[in-house]
C-alpha cells in the first residue's frame, strides 16, 4: 500500500471518512510561560496545511489530543476560542511523559493535533441565559475559550449577565493575567478574581478559596441562569453545595470531567463512567447526568 495514502473508509453515505487517529501536523508558533512556577505554558499552534485548519472546526469546551512523535498523545482542553482564527492555543501543565517533553520543545518545532474531540458547553441551549463561570487553577483553559467566545461582539448580545469567579493559589499562578485585567475593567462581564493567599500588599482583588468567594459574589440561580464549573476535584466538591444553596438546579450546573484517555473517540474503553465515556459522551456533563453515573473519575 502506498504510504502516502491515508487509510480512508467509506461511510454509509458513500462519503470518505478520515482516519480519526491521524493527527494534523502543526508547528509551534509561540510559547508563553503562564505561571511563576513555570509549570504551565501556553502553546500557540499553527496548522501546516490550510485545509486541516478548516476541518478543525471546534466550539468552546472541546478538547484535542496533542501528539508528539515518539512520546504519545495527551488530551488537553482547547484554550483558544473559535472566534480567534489562524491558530490553536493549549495551556499545558507539566506532569507526565508527553507534557514534560512538550515543555522542552521550542518554537518552530513540529507536532500533531487530533480533534476537536468531545462535547462543547451547550451553547445552543445557553443562548439568552445568564452564565456563571467558576474556575480554579489551570482548569481555566476551556473557560477562557468560553469567555472570549461570549465576549465577541457577534455573540455578546446572545447572552444575559456573565459572571466569572476564578481563583488560583497565588497571584503568580493565575492564567491569562492580562486578559483577566482587561475583563475586570469591562462592564459587560463581572469578573471576580481570587487567590488562596498572597503577601502582595498591592493585591486589589479577592483573597479566599473559590467556594466562599462564589457564595459572596455569584448571582442567585434561577431558571435563566446556568453555572459552568471547571477546576480541581476539591474545588468542585466544595463549590457544589454553594451552588445548591444559591439555588442552582443540578440540570443547570455544567461540569467538565477529566479521566485517563487514549483514543479520545470512544473506542479504547478506559475513560468510562458507567455507560458514558468521558471522551465522547463528555467531557461536558450536567451535574444531574453525573449523579446518574458511578463516580469513577
Amino acid at each position: 500500500m502506498d504510504l502516502k495514502t491515508p487509510a480512508r473508509r467509506r461511510d454509509d453515505k458513500g462519503g470518505i471518512v478520515q482516519n480519526p487517529y491521524l493527527p494534523y501536523p502543526v508547528r509551534i508558533d509561540e510559547i508563553v510561560v503562564e505561571t511563576e512556577d513555570k509549570n504551565l505554558k501556553t502553546f500557540k499552534l499553527v496548522f501546516l496545511n490550510k485545509e486541516d485548519e478548516e476541518k478543525f472546526n471546534y466550539k468552546a469546551g472541546q478538547f484535542a489530543e496533542l501528539s508528539i512523535a515518539g512520546k504519545g498523545e495527551i488530551p488537553i482542553g482547547i484554550a483558544s476560542s473559535p472566534v480567534e482564527k489562524g491558530f490553536l492555543k493549549f495551556t499545558v501543565n507539566r506532569a507526565g511523559v508527553v507534557t514534560t517533553h512538550l515543555h522542552s520543545m521550542k518554537e518552530g518545532d513540529i507536532m500533531g493535533v487530533r480533534g476537536p474531540l468531545g462535547n462543547w458547553y451547550p451553547w445552543e441551549m445557553l443562548e439568552g441565559k445568564n452564565i456563571l463561570i467558576v474556575g480554579g487553577g489551570f482548569a481555566f483553559t476551556t473557560l477562557r475559550s468560553s469567555i472570549v467566545y461570549m465576549l465577541h461582539p457577534d455573540n455578546r448580545p446572545k447572552f444575559g449577565n456573565i459572571d466569572v469567579v476564578y481563583g488560583a493559589r497565588t497571584p503568580g499562578m493565575l492564567l491569562y493575567k492580562d486578559e483577566l485585567i482587561q475583563w475586570e475593567k469591562r462592564d459587560d462581564i463581572n469578573v471576580h478574581i481570587t487567590v488562596d493567599t498572597t503577601d502582595d500588599p498591592d493585591w486589589k482583588y479577592n483573597v479566599g478559596f473559590v467556594p466562599p468567594i462564589t457564595e459572596q459574589k455569584a448571582p442567585q440561580g434561577d431558571e435563566n441562569t446556568y453555572a459552568i464549573v471547571c477546576g480541581p476535584p476539591i474545588m468542585i466538591k466544595f463549590t457544589q453545595p454553594v451552588l445548591e444553596k444559591l439555588g442552582y438546579d443540578h440540570e443547570h450546573i455544567i461540569m467538565s470531567l477529566e479521566n485517563r484517555m487514549k483514543c479520545g473517540i470512544g473506542m479504547c474503553g478506559r475513560c468510562g463512567i458507567g455507560k458514558e465515556l468521558v471522551c465522547k459522551d463528555g467531557p461536558v456533563f450536567t451535574l444531574a447526568a453525573i449523579n446518574r453515573t458511578p463516580r469513577e473519575y
Binding site: 515518539g70 518545532d109 513540529i110
Partner: peptide, 20 residues
C-alpha cells in the same frame, strides 16, 4: 503510524499511515 525523528527528513515528526 510510522514516522521519522530525523531532523534532516522533510517529514520529520509527521505521522504517516503504517503499511497494511
Amino acid at each position: 503510524f510510522v514516522y521519522s525523528l530525523d531532523q534532516n527528513d522533510e517529514d520529520c515528526n509527521i505521522l504517516k499511515e503504517a503499511p497494511k
